[in-house]
Design a protein around this nucleic acid. Structure first.
Length: 133
RNA sequence: CAAGUGGGCCGGGCGAUCGCCGCGGCCCGUUCUUUCUAUAAGCGAACGGGCCGGGGAGGAAAGUCCGAGCGACACAGGGCAGGGCGCUUCCUAACGGGAAGGCGGAGUGAUCCGACGGAAAGCGCAACAGAAAAUACACCGCCGAUGGCCGACAAGGGGCUUUGUCUCCGUGUCGGCACAGGUAAGGGUGAAAUGGCGCGGUAAGAGCGCGCCAGCGUCAUGGUGACAUGGCGGCUUGGCAAGCCCCGCCCGGCGCAAGACCAAAUAGGGAAGAAUGCGGUUGCCCGCCGCGAUGAGGACGCCUCGGCGCCCUUGAGACUUCCGGGUAGGUUGCUGGAGCCGGCCGGUGACGGUCGGCCUAGAGGAAUGAUCGCCACUUGUGGCGCUUUCGGGCGUCAUGGGAACAGAACUCGGCUUACAGGCCCACUUGAGAG
RNA sequence: UGGGGAGUGGUGCAGUGGUAGCACGUCUGACUCUGGAUCAGAAUGUCGGGGGUUCAAAUCCUCCCUCCCCAG
């Protein structure tokens, strides 16, 4: 039991979006939710292997407007870390894409984490309403 | 001690928990493969997962400004076009980089800065101002020796109806005019004005003559050389080449998203085959023969025929295997190298040689992150102690804050730019003490 | 990652060594009862930034900054 929980904390390659096509699908066909520092896109996953895995997948895009390479790298890692620890609200079989906004630079880890968690809960609500199956 | 110059180095440390990406080892699961045959352990391969061990950003990883390696393509050699470089010698795989030196400039100095070949090969440019801007001429000015004109004086000669305070002629001296002519000293300007200063000289002047300086040419000496020093010569030929250009040297263009290998699905290419179909064999079946998506069958036109052109109707089936190209995708290129560290030797130095040791990131929507504790660094505030030239300084405790620039993308060598704070070495100037 | 281009008044653009211009906009005045239109006049520039060449730089050279486009 304990072992499986630890497993849930991991973030292997299978839990990431890795192709441009996958990103495009989420952007073009998915729904959106916004926080103060993030815009999040989400969509049911199409890949049967992912569906079978029963866990959501994450993709992060930080645009050049946000800052230089070093700043953007750090933001992406923070988003990944929050997703790794606090992804429970998100239903399985979802692909989500997080876009940090320029204002996120310089904010403390705690503030960013709370904001992103709130967005995750919004997604959970939206999913329940939109798909009452 | 203060101010400064040059060079080198560091870019927080230790630990805990969770997580990420390679590598090595062990283990589990699924699929595939394998001997004469069957089953199939083991071996092997691919994929997924677990455990253990060990590794994981920089001095600039940045900008992409140069130079190379590497790759496929092109290419006899040479030239043109285009681009780059530009004091000398050396270093280097190469460079637009570096070292040492020369020259010029800045600074009291340590030092620093310099795209620093050619302007008598040619073309071009210079606003405004100024007499004039590249041509030594015009203009103002100066002179006017010589010649010219005017006048005075002196001595001389000639002329005469008039012997004169007459007139004519040239000569000399003096004065004037500025006509010919001489001159480039001076001319408010300008970024720049035809070498500078001085003496002589002259009618006035002028390298016209001389001395020194600058510049040019040439010779000697020193130096590999840039160049320096000295002698001699004739006196002088402006600036811009980061304007065109000339001279010398260099350059094939394109790039790891280069290139190589494996290789779904769909469409298409090539080859082989099968079945169906159509016609004939009197009808049917079988068999046989012929035709057949490279167009069967029908009708029309042209045509001697073979056949050709065009139109209409119809068009079932369109399969299997193999081959080659190739997209998605995957693998590779991909990190052991002009490598790093240390010693010794050569060299003023950049650097080279040699010996020993070391292996030190390899991602691919892209790995090095998150949280916490302790210790160092720095700073604000407060308390205490010591000291004081009464500005403050030092030590210690508590508490709050700060900690830069910035993220490998094929790999090196440089350049440039960004950067909190700190350490070390050498040198300069000033002050004080000895 | 690689390749290419641009930056000039508030906006859109000229100017390619010699006093920075044009159009629209802005402001002031006139006309009008008022506004618009029209007429007259005015203001507005570190020429993206630093350094260099030149007597003189928006212009030439060099190093940066910002923005845009293309390949994939």
């Amino acid at each position: 039991m304990r072992r499986s929980e630890e497993k849930q904390m991991g973030f292997p390659k299978a839990l990431r979006l890795r192709k441009r096509r996958e990103y495009r699908r989420v952007y073009d066909e998915g729904d959106r939710a916004y926080g103060r520092f993030f815009a999040v896109f989400f969509k049911e996953s199409a890949d049967p292997i992912v569906v079978a895995a029963g866990r959501p997948r994450l993709g992060v895009t930080v645009t050049r407007k946000v800052g230089n390479a070093c700043v953007r790298n750090r933001l992406r890692r923070l988003v990944r870390e929050v997703f790794r620890r606090h992804r429970h609200p998100i239903p399985a079989n979802r692909d989500i894409v997080v876009n940090p906004r320029p204002g996120a630079v310089g904010q403390t880890t705690e503030v960013l984490q709370r904001d992103l968690e709130a967005v995750f809960h919004k997604i959970r609500m939206a999913m329940r309403k939109g798909a009452p199956s």
